[in-house]
Structures are given as C-alpha cells and as structure tokens.
C-alpha cells in the first residue's frame, strides 16, 4: 500500500512542479520568477524524500538537506542583487 501512496503523492508533486514551471515562464515580473524557482526547490526536496522512501534507503536525506541550503542561499542572493545592486557589500 505504501508503494501506491508514494506513486500517487509523486504524481501530485509532479503536477505542482509543472504549475511552478508555468509561473516561472509566464511570470510578469522577475520577483515572480524567483518565487517560482524557490517553490520548485522545495518541491524537489519533497520529491527526493519520496524517492528515498520508495527505495527504502536513508541515503537521500543528505541530498535533500543540501538542496534546502543551496535553494535558500540562491534565493537570498537573487533578492540581495535586485535590492542593493550587489550581493556582498
């Protein structure tokens, strides 16, 4: 039963990723695109965790933690660049 649940939730997350990609393409302003990219990072963390459950291994948690940290740092770097014109002052 758990395998079927993991496949269903993976389908939901893939639909969510496609909706985020749609917002990333049509976004009227660049802030919309940064927001869509940040949401795609979070969705891919959830997808990697589901892949770890499906393969019955705890190996992918390290990858999820790395993606979480890099996603936060990249979003803040984009925001700082648009806000101040420079990343590290």
């Amino acid at each position: 039963m758990l395998d079927i649940t993991v496949i269903i939730v993976s389908g939901m997350l893939c639909v969510a990723l496609i909706l985020n990609l749609w917002r990333l393409i049509i976004g009227p302003h660049v802030v919309d695109r940064i927001l869509a990219l940040d949401t795609m990072y979070i969705n891919s963390i959830a997808l990697i965790l589901l892949y770890g459950i499906y393969n019955r291994t705890p190996l992918y948690f390290e990858a999820a933690l790395l993606i979480a940290m890099l996603g936060f740092v990249s979003s803040v770097a984009f925001g700082k660049y648009l806000l101040r014109g420079d990343i590290i002052e």
Partner: peptide, 14 residues
C-alpha cells in the same frame, strides 16, 4: 496530506 498541501500551494502560486 503533505502532497495535497504542496499541490494547493502551487495552484495558489499560479
């Protein structure tokens, strides 16, 4: 429940 909330967040983003 987690998958439904993620999907609702993306629908709201769109």
């Amino acid at each position: 429940v987690g998958g439904i909330f993620v999907l609702v967040g993306s629908i709201g983003l769109l």
